[in-house]
Amino acid sequence: MLAPAVTGFATGFSLILAIGAQNAFVLRQGLLGAHVLPLCLFCALSDAVLIAAGVAGFAAVVEALPALPRLMALGGAAFLLVYGALRLRAAWVGDYRMVLSGRSGSLAATLAAAAAFTWANPHVYLDTLGLVGAVSTQFEAGAEKWAFGSGAVLASFTFFFGLGYGARLLAPVMTSARAWQWLDLGVGLVMWGLAAGLLLG
């Protein structure tokens, strides 16, 4: 069972490693040191659900509903455009008194944003339901396939908790409004770039 689990871990980690909207949000919250545990747990558990569905063969649903990917892309792009605009506006205004004092939005608002970044992102379905599901087909149904899925789930937990809590290593750098402006500028541009990719794809 070790080989399928290692393959699952490597597959899951390689897919999640790229900086995307969800990862940028987790990084920002990690730098704030706010709601890190519930946020990382939410993201990792969401991935676990999607990976399990992918391994179980849920990708067939997308084939049965060919319009679904485009609808998800449009919804995800709209959200990314709005959130990106908020981050760019924050960078322009440059008022980081609340951030520098260590305050953040409420837990409910943080998890609501995380839910949007996770479940309104069509790429997450491509990665988990599509690619992870496709790779899992090389293993026999039963123990091997679920060992592969468990490895992919472990990769998500490792990544999100590493990103959320590892962000504290950058905390000494993020002690000025200027540093937060650059971060928000980068996050905003990443969001808009991802939105453009969804709309043009």
Rank of each mutant, 00 (worst) to 15 (best):
Ala3Trp: 13
Phe9Val: 09
Gly12Cys: 03
Ile16Cys: 09
Ala18Thr: 14
Ile19Met: 08
Asn23Lys: 12
Leu27Trp: 11
Arg28Asp: 12
Gly30Arg: 03
Gly33Trp: 04
His35Leu: 05
Val36Gln: 00
Leu37Ser: 06
Pro38Ile: 03
Leu39Gln: 00
Phe42His: 01
Ala44Cys: 07
Leu45Cys: 13
Val49Glu: 08
Leu50Val: 02
Ile51Tyr: 01
Ala53Gly: 13
Gly57Val: 02
Ala64Leu: 14
Ala67Pro: 05
Leu68Val: 11
Arg70Glu: 15
Leu71Gln: 11
Ala77Asp: 02
Ala78Cys: 15
Ala85Trp: 13
Ala85His: 12
Ala90Cys: 10
Trp92Gly: 06
Asp95Val: 10
Asp95Lys: 11
Met98Pro: 08
Val99Phe: 08
Gly102Met: 08
Arg103Gly: 06
Ala113Gly: 03
Ala116Ser: 02
Thr118Gly: 07
Tyr125Glu: 00
Leu129Trp: 00
Leu129Ile: 09
Ser136Trp: 05
Thr137Phe: 05
Gln138Cys: 08
Phe139Gly: 02
Glu140Pro: 13
Ala141Leu: 08
Gly142Phe: 11
Gly149Arg: 00
Gly151Glu: 00
Val153Phe: 09
Phe157Gly: 02
Thr158Trp: 11
Phe160Gln: 05
Gly164Glu: 01
Tyr165Phe: 15
Tyr165Asp: 08
Tyr165Leu: 15
Gly166Glu: 07
Ala167Cys: 12
Arg168Thr: 07
Leu169Thr: 10
Leu170Glu: 13
Ala171Arg: 15
Pro172Asp: 06
Ala177Cys: 09
Arg178Ile: 06
Trp180Tyr: 14
Val187Met: 12
Leu198Phe: 12
Leu200Thr: 14
Leu200Arg: 14
